[in-house]
């Protein structure tokens, strides 16, 4: 049985801040920092937005494109994030209620740093492939945190994308998935701590690059493919530099990663990063396009996917919801004072 993406939807908050504005506050060359990271602006959630509202908007956009799908036929909803608003109380039930998929379904919140969204896609593939559910929903969304003045503050942003996984009306077939997982403490946030810590340069070679390259090579070996067989590729993008470099190391060109690389304009949306890149590729894909996807989550692991766009994308009602081009148009730039207020960094009286 073929299993794949039946629909997708994406959402990114409207507000943006530029690295030079952040650098100005901390006495750092923010513009240079942005250039080094290849991040020229990042999205900022409004004070009334969180992972629940971002995941809901993405999931509603996903459902708007498949009016023929009865939400009651959804048997599983998984929301992957490292910024769930509650420590105990699922995001996924609120998202499921917001698309009217409840109550005959299972749901859970997933967390695996930046790859919880792709882990959700794999879980849904298993449930659909085994016949346990007709459709599953996997969302990757975050309102990520960076400590004031830390390098992460220049990249941590907000956004998310949702995927309806099924075996009927597939617009993009998932040919194969492979994962590479180890215990590598490159980035973490302890219970009750507001900001994560990271291992600096340790987040590079032994963490991001080793896991992505290993998962990507495993998948291409299993599929008998090479980079030239794919029209598009998307890699996890904590900044613009890492995915560009890993693509080159694996043998993918800048042309292949252009639709999947959104971080330079929206920052690192963590669990939303690869899902949003994949959504932007699907916004621009045509039948027969082959897509190579590899996520990365600190801690650490990578999920790789080989995806083929089907003829069904031609009749797919993509315009029933805004494409990412429209979502990202007309941003509102804010200064650091407004950013501090939006992100709850100002200590208020009770």
């Amino acid at each position: 049985m073929d299993v794949g993406i039946v629909s997708y939807g994406a959402y990114v908050p409207r507000y943006r801040i530029k690295p030079e504005e952040i650098g100005k506050i901390w006495g750092v060359d923010g513009k240079g920092m942005g250039k080094g990271l290849m991040i020229f602006e990042k999205s900022v959630p409004s004070p009334d937005e969180d992972v629940v509202t971002i995941a809901t908007e993405a999931a509603r956009n996903m459902m708007a494109r498949v009016p023929e799908v009865d939400p009651q036929d959804i048997g599983a909803v998984y929301v992957g994030s490292e910024s769930h608003p509650y420590a105990v109380k699922p995001t996924s039930t609120i998202v499921a209620e917001s698309i009217e998929a409840t109550p005959a379904m299972t749901a859970a919140d997933l967390e695996f740093a930046c790859k919880a969204g792709t882990a959700g896609i794999q879980a849904c593939m298993g449930l659909v492939g085994s016949g346990m559910v007709r459709y599953g929903v996997a969302v990757g969304a975050d309102t990520s945190q960076g400590a004031p003045g830390d390098a992460l503050e220049y990249s941590a942003s907000a956004g998310g994308a949702a995927f309806l996984i099924g075996s009927e009306g597939i617009i993009a077939r998932i040919d194969k998935t492979a994962s590479f997982t180890t215990d590598t403490p490159d980035f973490w946030r302890r219970e009750g701590q507001p900001y994560p810590l990271h291992g600096g340069r340790f987040t590079g070679e032994p963490a991001y690059f080793r896991h992505i390259i290993s998962a990507a090579k495993m998948l291409m070996k299993e599929m008998g493919t090479e980079p030239g067989d794919y029209q598009h590729a998307v890699f996890h993008q904590p900044n613009g530099k890492f995915p560009t470099r890993v693509a080159k190391q694996l043998g993918f060109s800048d042309e292949q990663i252009k639709f999947g690389l959104l971080t330079p304009n929206i920052g690192n949306t963590y669990s939303g990063a690869v899902p949003l890149g994949l959504a932007n590729i699907l916004d621009n894909a045509v039948p027969g396009d082959r897509i190579f996807v590899t996520s990365y989550g600190s801690g650490a692991g990578s999920d790789a996917f080989d995806i083929t766009v089907t003829d069904a994308i031609e009749d797919y009602k993509r315009d029933n919801a805004p494409t990412l081009d429209k979502v990202l148009a007309d941003p509102v730039y804010i200064d650091y004072g407004m950013y501090a207020k939006f992100m709850g960094k100002i200590l208020m009286s009770e």
Partner: peptide
Amino acid sequence: LRKLDADGLAGVIHY
């Protein structure tokens, strides 16, 4: 869908 209110830092969030 947006956050409408929350019952303090420990209470329920209303959407």
